[in-house]
């Protein structure tokens, strides 16, 4: 017991489901998430398959975390607006969202943040192109482009859920 390791890995924001899948594969291999940072994941040794891990984007809300803990989940950590939970598999099924509407609401939250940051970068790009720092402007334009691409990916995920929502709830 007590063995730990740190893995550095990059995930795009719109690949949060891929990130979650990877964290659960790690748990299956006996490494459960124990802390998060910028592109950094801390793990501690566990029984293979002992835990399920979930993540989501949600503005800071202590009462939400208390609510999650009340349902048997453990708060692992937070990086920016992303929060990470784990729960013992033997304590029952673990999902954060069980209907289409709340999944869409989650994507909307992510989309709004990407839109705001993307918009700010666009504004900076414009202001820098007028001023001296041309290369900073180029950097801002690249950031804005990446964020807009991300917004498109999130929108795509949302559209397929909305299509399902026309027939199911």
């Amino acid at each position: 017991m007590g063995e730990r390791k740190t893995v550095r890995k990059w995930f795009w924001v719109w690949d949060f489901d891929k990130e979650e899948r990877w964290l659960n594969e790690m748990a299956l291999q006996g490494w459960v998430l124990d802390g998060v940072g910028f592109c950094t994941y801390h793990f501690k040794k566990c029984e293979p398959g002992e835990y399920a891990v979930r993540l989501e984007m949600r503005p800071h809300d202590e009462s939400y975390i208390a609510f999650m803990e009340e349902t048997g989940a453990e708060f692992v950590g937070r990086f920016t607006m992303w929060i990470y939970f784990r729960k013992r598999v033997e304590d029952g099924a673990f999902d954060l969202y069980s209907d289409i509407d709340s999944k869409i609401a989650h994507l909307d939250r992510i989309g709004r943040v990407l839109a705001v940051i993307g918009g700010l970068n666009l504004l900076c790009a414009f202001m820098n192109s007028v001023g001296v720092g041309t290369w900073v402007g180029v950097l801002n334009t690249i950031c804005a482009t990446v964020l807009m691409y991300g917004l498109g990916r999130i929108h795509g995920k949302k559209e397929s859920l909305q299509q399902a929502r026309q027939l199911y709830e």
Binding site: F67, D95, L96, S98, D99, S102
Partner: peptide
């Protein structure tokens, strides 16, 4: 099976 995040919002 209600998931906690869905329940919290509801």
């Amino acid at each position: 099976r209600l998931a906690a995040g869905t329940l919290y919002g509801a």
